[in-house]
Write a protein that binds this DNA or RNA. Sequence first.
DNA 1: ACGGTGAGTAACAGCGCGTAACGACGCCGG
DNA 2: CCGGCGTCGTTACGCGCTGTTACTCACCGT
Lengths: 243, 243
Amino acid sequence: MTAMTATTPAFVPFPASMLRLVPDSLDIAALSAQMTVLRRRVRGGQHVYRAGQPFRALFFVHAGFLRRSVATADGREQVTGFPMRGELVGVESIGSGHYTVDVVALDDCEIIELPYPAVLDACAAMPTLQGALTQALAQELRRDQYWMLTLGTLNADQRVAAFLQDLAARHRALGFSASHFVLRMSRIDIASFLALKHETVTRALSHLAAAGIIAVERREIRIACAERLGRCAGGAELARCAA
Amino acid sequence: MTAMTATTPAFVPFPASMLRLVPDSLDIAALSAQMTVLRRRVRGGQHVYRAGQPFRALFFVHAGFLRRSVATADGREQVTGFPMRGELVGVESIGSGHYTVDVVALDDCEIIELPYPAVLDACAAMPTLQGALTQALAQELRRDQYWMLTLGTLNADQRVAAFLQDLAARHRALGFSASHFVLRMSRIDIASFLALKHETVTRALSHLAAAGIIAVERREIRIACAERLGRCAGGAELARCAA
DNA sequence: ACGGTGAGTAACAGCGCGTAACGACGCCGG
DNA sequence: CCGGCGTCGTTACGCGCTGTTACTCACCGT
């Protein structure tokens, strides 16, 4: 509580390093040799699972975009992430007995079902798998903490910039264009995720567009200057450029 | 995107169920038989580890209270949690090569150091241990998502109420009094964690005190009516009782 | 053509922030 | 023992960002 800031820690969490897809090391082919995996298709709008259902399996996203959200009995709801290809879904529910969140497909998805107790057995048989699973969980934790930082320290415009930057990086990591992509989620979903209202998200997008940093046409996003977008997301440039 | 709310999921995350200490099943005694564990004392104000340092070990909190925070190069900082006895610290850094957050002791702590690669080996030798570790990580994920929900959907007064409620429940889980305890962290730490400013935290505490729900004397908290506190944290009672 | 959903815009209001000043406590040296 | 000093906590006040409300438009399937 006294003197503890000798050398400022100051470490950037993972503006890009979080993108390394852990399931790279999650070898589905090898996993399917150890257990019965189920390939499943989910249409846009349908649930992969709902909060409260008995926990049976993890899901590896093979294609498509999803939305994960928590809800309370009194009607509050919070979007906690938008999983996409290469990510492991359902890990947050391990050990709870039942799923604790809702996961909905934003468009047509293809997911691979991994029955859970069997996953642990497979880990015991394949030591590397255990490390990969643990790592995937830890990365999710880092991701959550990164967004806590973002939501706790940035204003509305900066949050939206950070959101777009994150989406761009994840698209690039999947081989898609990082400068031109389509939002799979509604403004309301984005707003919930960023702890804002959808009008504020719209305003922020308009600001960024007016500043020439991006171009918006409904759900279609073009990033004109990734560098300026990054400065908005991390620094305080927008305070000037959107004034 | 069409009709997806047939039966509202509406599931309470864990107003109390999150309290089950996962490390209950993390048998330190058995672990120490598998690997060399190190007992360490940390004085209040000192770091357990700093962001950027090479990742070497997890830490099991045996006594004391800690603060975990992320920081960025441009000076932003966010407190992401207050670990206490029975919790596992450092898991968020697994697989990253270096620690990604700062962990500081709020008072004198006693922690048990668990060298990391060795933990994985121990898991391989003791299958139950792997499940316990995975479960601990998953619980951390649920906890983070619970706070995302809290910060994203509640106003300042409600957030502070939820914070106190959480602290009370965790104190009770450790055998301490849930209705009378001492805050180990400053208003600034609380504010950072709740994505508020410290003056707002003070105001919220004053509001709760004026409503007769709690009594505040600097860092000493007495909860007069846990039920009303819970309603403030989850519902919208305070909008009325603090007006 | 029609209704429904999602998106954009504007005017207004309110919560929470920023600043400031004061008080309480602890630490230290005189 | 006392006074200075710094940190932490509290309260007041004005303002700005964001939420609120309302309306219009674009799109889409019926």
